[in-house]
Design a protein around this nucleic acid. Sequence first.
DNA 1: TTTGACTTTGGAGTTAACTCTAAGGTTTAT
DNA 2: ATAAACCTTAGAGTTAACTCCAAAGTCAAA
Lengths: 137, 137
Amino acid sequence: MVRIGEIAKRLGVSTDTLRYYEKQGILTSSGRSESGYRLYTEQDIAQLAFVIRAKDVGFTLNEIKELLAIKVDKQSHSCEQVKQFTSEKISQVERKITEMNAILNSLKLLHKSCCGGDEPAIHCSILSALEVQNDAN
Amino acid sequence: MVRIGEIAKRLGVSTDTLRYYEKQGILTSSGRSESGYRLYTEQDIAQLAFVIRAKDVGFTLNEIKELLAIKVDKQSHSCEQVKQFTSEKISQVERKITEMNAILNSLKLLHKSCCGGDEPAIHCSILSALEVQNDAN
DNA sequence: TTTGACTTTGGAGTTAACTCTAAGGTTTAT
DNA sequence: ATAAACCTTAGAGTTAACTCCAAAGTCAAA
């Protein structure tokens, strides 16, 4: 059980951010010390790592909250609902990866064809790199 | 040359957003009509498509501006600088793709092992799916 | 035992990226 | 020729996700 400053430092976020995440229901500390200090477990740290990773790749906190909320408690979610929801998220992530790769290709093309090649530096902008890509279709 | 409403509709953004992008130097219309209406070319549309894609995968408008600004005009940027900058962006995108794939794996594991399999629904949350992944390391 | 580094809360302030409003000019369809 | 659907600007308002602040309690080291 570590205190808020420790987990913040380990994962490179501010203590303010952690308290904010608690308010938003994204990450609640596992307990409190006698004096009221928040105490976090390794589990909490794993969860925070997931949150940060998901945020990095463009999920909003609300989407992350939905991901974290996936649980099958008979009352609220059926297995079918969970399957359905994760399927949707999987396609969404796959779509993002495709888009990422498109951007990566543009950048690589730019990096390769711009400056220093045999041909003159015609393709020295993302835009002309994009044009070349379009031409290739 | 199409007007602002047309390009907005085609790419699914609002006209307000387009005017905002112009203010921010992200996308300026290629010209104006007699009466002062913004007029956009197919080029502009391609550029907007790039902007939207980059935004979707988590680039900020400022980062996108930097990407769009890559140009080798002798005064301002040397070829070396451009190469350097694009290299950095390439690693950044590659890192993001790696993180995306990690998230994708969590989701797939969750989808596969949760509910409906032979084993009971133990892994019915992202968090337990993450734990399994960690165990696998 | 007191200094300094940590923590608490509530609430205000900030930034990016829109989004909306008002007051007006332009174009197109009837 | 006039209504409906478009466009203009300037500027105010909104939302998400922090970030900062004040006033106070806690804890470890010198």
